[in-house]
């Protein structure tokens, strides 16, 4: 069995907060992260989810060696991240969506030259690797433009190429799609999917965007107030919190509201009953049973089943207090 690429045991981080002034000055300890246990195997794609202030960035900083844990242990690529910061830096790539590791007044091409020197890539390695990234991230057009003149979407693509230049084993993305327009987001996701399919890069992603999670990851870890709230697959999470699914039926003729279908709640009626939306909890009934009930009342022309909104799922998870 190969060693996991990240393993955290009892990982925790406290911060000392000082409030007040002079004699009323007080010290209090805030627990940003506590008792996190998880391992991530090489090649996995994990979404790290949580509300603002749930402890996501703190965890990322501990995984990458920027911050030292106050409790527990963490190993990234088999290394103690803080003690072996430099060695680890050669093996991971990190992108902070809202911060830049590029030189803002230099063109991307210059930044890559500098990064290649920093990571001691030979000229041949640099040329091939850069060529691949430029092509796949479509950077060619603005490779010689100073970073500060790039659009956000272009800059983030440039950042990702910078993080991948030294072919890291682990790619950590902190809110990579924040602020991007729909098109740029889609493009970025497409690239990341290809990157995953192509190689053995492990991906750890924090995001607010549930589409990112759905499209890019095969496992999610949810933190709430610094503690582990869930670790598993997305469908598993949906099942765990028992989120409702919604079945939307389009009927052949106007029908009275289907208010009494067993095991469902009527959410809405449109166009005089031509379209009706029913919510049901998987487990208490099934889509087939609901459909059978509805068909008995009116002829169904079309139907769709809406998957639960994931933000809603996470909210429910938080509310359930697990």
């Amino acid at each position: 069995m190969t060693e996991p690429i990240i393993s955290a045991t009892g990982l925790g981080r406290d911060f000392v907060i000082r409030t007040g002034r002079g004699l009323r000055r007080r010290r209090s300890i805030t627990r940003a992260v506590a008792d996190l246990d998880f391992t991530i195997e090489a090649g996995a794609a994990v979404g790290y989810i949580g509300a603002n202030g749930a402890g996501k960035s703190t965890t990322i900083k501990m995984l990458t060696g920027i911050l030292v844990p106050t409790a527990g242990r963490v190993h990234t690529c088999g290394l103690d991240p803080h003690r072996h910061r430099r060695e680890l830096a050669r093996r991971i790539g990190v992108v902070f969506g809202q911060r830049s590791q590029l030189w803002w007044d230099l063109p991307l091409a210059e930044s890559y030259r500098a990064l290649a020197a920093i990571h001691r890539l030979g000229p041949d390695t640099l040329r091939t690797r850069r060529g691949t990234l430029v092509e796949r991230l479509d950077l060619g057009e603005f490779l010689e433009t100073p970073v500060r003149q790039l659009s956000l979407g272009q800059r983030i693509r440039g950042e990702i190429a910078a993080a991948l230049l030294h072919s890291p084993e682990l790619l950590i993305l902190d809110e990579p799609t924040i602020g991007l327009d729909v098109l740029s987001k889609e493009r970025l996701r497409q690239f990341l999917l290809e990157e995953r399919a192509a190689g053995d890069t492990t991906l750890l992603l924090t995001t607010h965007d549930m589409d990112d999670v759905q499209r890019l990851t095969d496992r999610i870890i949810v933190v709430d107030h610094g503690r582990m709230a869930y670790d598993g697959t997305l469908p598993g999470l949906v099942e765990r919190v028992g989120a409702d699914r919604v079945i939307v039926v389009d009927l052949e003729e106007t029908t009275a509201p289907l208010a009494d279908v067993a095991g469902t709640r009527l959410l809405g009626v449109e166009a005089d009953g031509l379209r009706q939306r029913l919510a049901f909890t998987p487990g208490s009934t099934t889509a087939a049973a609901v459909l059978a009930h509805v068909s008995a009342r009116a002829e169904v022309r079309d139907l769709t089943i809406e998957e639960p909104d994931i933000e809603d799922v996470v909210r429910r998870l938080y509310a359930s207090g697990t």
């Binding site: 990458t64 991971i92 911060r99 920093i118």
Partner: peptide
């Protein structure tokens, strides 16, 4: 403030 120091910490140099 700008996070540049974090970027430095993520590079394999002092």
């Amino acid at each position: 403030r700008s996070g540049t120091l974090d970027a430095f910490l993520l590079r394999p140099l002092p």
